[in-house]
Amino acid sequence: MRKVYTRPRSLKRVPFHYCPGCGHSIVHRVMTELIDEMHLQDRIIGIPPPGCSVFAYHYFDVDMAESAHGRGAAVATGIKRAYPEVMVFTYQGDGDLAAIGTAETIHAANRGERITAIFINNAVYGMTGGQMAPTTLSEQVTTTTPYGRDVNLEGYPVKMSEMVALVRGAVYIERTAVNSPANIRKTKKAIRKALQSQIDGLGFSLVEILSPCPTNWKMTPLESWQWIDKEMTKEFPLGVIKDITGKTDAD
């Protein structure tokens, strides 16, 4: 019998703690498939954040180390500079990367650090119970915007990928989503390209992934997939935002 589906080798045999329908688990799956396919398991280091994905080190069977909230890009920089032979990725939430970690992210990109940021945009602070994130949509109700996000008071949804794209050292930036099989495939392709740009030593890469948080959005998993299509992509359009890798698609 031919095996057509199996657990990636670099994904540990541990049940996820994520809520049903959470996008984190899908991205973990995609990442570990890529780590296997690109033969990176013994030469990649991951930096998960404080956030729902804080326990990512229980799932990825590669070297992993925790960072303080928002400091992932700086920690990854330190690793890469100390030991350039290794691949480094950060795995960060929107609060982590686009609020408290804005400075670290922009400056790592500007230095063209050879690191890859996996940026999970779920429009809320998941871990702490559904507060406003920098990416929270206008009018969206969260526990700290009980009257809906008012752009006059709380500002506009932050488009971090577009901001990072302006920076010279950033070479590959794409926004994807994990709300349909097709989009999941595109996500995988984007991450592959980002990792490849790091292997090629080109500069900073970032993949922003629109990811459902049914729990804090107070939706069913299916409704949250639809909400990404209907609402989130209006503010955060999908697609390649910057590509100066000079590569055509591998497949």
Binding site: Y125, M127, T128, Q131, P146, Y147
Partner: peptide, 20 residues
């Protein structure tokens, strides 16, 4: 404030009762 457990209810209380 900035969210962090275990004090989020305070930030949320202020969002509801002080902000307006």
């Amino acid at each position: 404030g900035y969210p962090i457990t275990p004090q989020n209810e305070l930030t949320e209380y202020m969002a509801t009762h002080l902000s307006r």
